[in-house]
Design a protein around this nucleic acid. Structure first.
Lengths: 83, 83
DNA sequence: TAATTTTATGATCCCAGCATCATATATGCA
DNA sequence: TGCATATATGATGCTGGGATCATAAAATTA
């Protein structure tokens, strides 16, 4: 799965989707990542501005990586994200 | 250009590279993004943990977007980033 | 639907991000 | 090498992130 994120809120959404795809609970992710369940909840729901550091803690626990690329290139996501 | 970021520090580096590629000074980017030059300097150098929000302010000013993807797939970067 | 598990919410406290101002370095160019 | 521009650094203060504890609300499942 591949997620395009244009805002912190969308990053939170991507994290939720990825977590669910891996059938993890917030608590399990919390243990793996060192980020509290309560905090994960807030991040996934887009409350809280979140620090980059925290996001990376979650992403690496989920084995995800971040790519920064020119906006233009592809609404590749529109296609691939359909599922 | 495409950057793979595995840490806040690498995000800062990617921002610097993208800014330079667009021949912008920190001050110019500061004006466009609403983030202070001093803050940009610190972010580019990996000092400061930075908030996600601030990163997105910079990325959109640079017309960059973020993709979150499974780690595995491609050391596509190693190839494409060579230049 | 009762019991259990998962998520969300709320409050408090500490620490750090960032705006802001001042200034020191460094880099580029005439 | 001297001046202008660009970048880095340092200090301060306010605000908000996140750890932490307690608990409410949802969602699962027996």
């Amino acid at each position: 799965m591949k997620y395009l994120a244009r805002s912190p809120r969308e990053v939170g959404h991507a994290i939720r989707e990825a977590r669910k795809a891996q059938k993890l609970t917030q608590k399990e992710l919390a243990i793996r990542s060192g980020v509290w369940q309560e905090t994960i909840s807030k991040i996934e729901n887009g409350l809280s501005g979140t620090k980059l550091e925290t996001i990376f803690d979650l992403l690496s626990a989920l084995e995800l990586e971040v790519t920064i690329d020119d906006r233009s290139k592809g609404s590749s996501t529109s296609l691939e994200d359909i599922f």
